[in-house]
């Protein structure tokens, strides 16, 4: 049985069933369409402006919502500020990694995107386990649920904006790309959440911020699969 190295040597021997089409001379300019489709579509500058506006609007929403919930008293302390800054930077870098085009303008490889989509929730959970213990007495269920609701409301607008801006953006693997971007947006939401929520219990640390990341991944995958493909 031939091995994989034979591929390059022998592949040219396979004839082309559609050679007659590929060999056709290109149509004269006069024969083709005189201009593009009549349907309006965004240009690149317009899209860049839209993406910037959406990013600023999403950040503003997170900050406003957090401020409305009441910022925690110890927000300025290094113990709180440094982890939040690290999470914010990681979220931004992750989005850059997921969205920035690579060589020849092509998107990031599927492996990189899959790694990102898995690393964000797993990494967050691991960090939560390391940072916190279990509170005694336990935090009441009502507070848990309130924190989860607050987290989801914080995440709502950034997710919607991301879905709008990234519609029809993905050349391949749209579900994975949507999942990676959704979980990274969720990570950004965690910054806002922990700016006003000061639990010292593993369950609230993992649970309320968990939904934005988990929901972001799931909703992002669904949005990517349904509307993300170019």
């Amino acid at each position: 049985m031939a091995n994989e190295h034979d591929l390059l040597r022998g592949i040219e021997d396979i004839p082309d069933p559609a050679a007659h089409l590929a060999a056709r001379p290109p149509p004269a300019l006069a024969e083709g369409p005189a201009e593009g489709p009549a349907e309006p579509s965004l240009t690149r500058p317009a899209r860049e402006r839209r993406a910037l506006s959406a990013t600023l609007a999403g950040l503003a929403w997170i900050l406003l919502f957090s401020w409305g919930e009441g910022l925690r008293d110890d927000l300025g302390s290094p113990r709180v500020l440094v982890p939040l800054a690290v999470v914010a930077v990681l979220s931004g870098l992750g989005l850059l990694l997921a969205l920035r085009p690579r060589a020849r303008g092509l998107p990031a490889s599927v492996r990189a995107i899959q790694a990102l989509a898995v690393a964000v929730p797993v990494g967050f959970l691991a960090a939560a386990v390391v940072r916190s213990g279990v509170a005694d007495p336990p935090v009441p269920l009502e507070l848990h649920l309130r924190c989860v609701a607050s987290a989801l409301c914080t995440a709502l607008v950034p997710f919607a904006l991301a879905a709008l801006v990234l519609r029809r953006s993905f050349l391949s693997a749209p579900a994975w790309r949507g999942a990676a971007i959704g979980s990274l947006c969720g990570l950004g939401v965690v910054v806002g959440l922990e700016a006003h929520c000061a639990p010292d219990d593993l369950r609230p640390v993992a649970a309320p911020p968990g939904p934005p990341i988990g929901a972001g991944a799931l909703l992002g995958a669904a949005a990517g699969a349904l509307r993300g493909r170019a």
Partner: peptide, 19 residues
Amino acid sequence: LRMHRARSTFARGGAVAPW
């Protein structure tokens, strides 16, 4: 038609053939 709709996503300096 899809290329027209997605033209804004074409990266600056990118290669059009694989896209």
